[in-house]
Design a protein around this nucleic acid. Sequence first.
DNA 1: CCATTACATAGACGATCATCTATGTATAGT
DNA 2: ACTATACATAGATGATCGTCTATGTAATGG
Lengths: 107, 107
Amino acid sequence: MDYQNYVQMLKAMADPNRLKIIDLLSCGSLCACDILQHFDFSQPTLSHHMKVLQNAGIVFAVKDGKWQHYSLQKRFVQEFKQNTDQLLAADEHCLCQRSDCEKDVAN
Amino acid sequence: MDYQNYVQMLKAMADPNRLKIIDLLSCGSLCACDILQHFDFSQPTLSHHMKVLQNAGIVFAVKDGKWQHYSLQKRFVQEFKQNTDQLLAADEHCLCQRSDCEKDVAN
DNA sequence: CCATTACATAGACGATCATCTATGTATAGT
DNA sequence: ACTATACATAGATGATCGTCTATGTAATGG
């Protein structure tokens, strides 16, 4: 499994404010000023967070006049769930490579 | 949704080494020395990572003589998937609370 | 007992991070 | 043209993070 991209997603999500932004965008696209209203931090801070989310492939932006409309990347939603399932499944991709691997033992 | 616990899980997962530890443990319990063999960092560093994973509710430890056996918390596997689904679903829990909420608009 | 093994704790250090203020850059309205 | 609005960029700062070395502790074996 490709950790690199998944870790970047996790890092971007591992901030309460960015997680809330993702939650906001899960119901549709919003412009920066709309998002900002839900937070106490400054506008440059939001700009920073949006860039982190874009770099992680979580969010994409469309410019419309003065406004930047942000939306969740559909591909992110799909890939994140897929990577999560793969990570947490006790299946045959087992990394431990030990002869006494306990992958079949329930905990 | 309770961000606090979910964010703590995400933070703990947002490190490539800890993610690999989770992957290793997804196929069964391992002791610290077994886990350490898969990495280049020092033993205290592993001890630190295991504590982070325990504090996040991802891993639990059972002591057996000299050995510490680590396993994934079943509850974590379940709750993490559940929280992820809830976060990324465009359902009625919409936070934006705007009259023109676009939660029904596909992107 | 003493040495070894398995692991934890303490403290330090450099890197990364979230946030801020100050400022720049478009776009829109009058 | 001027002003206001929406957003980005630059640079600074304090906090957090991942890692290390040094050391402590508890269990095991001869």
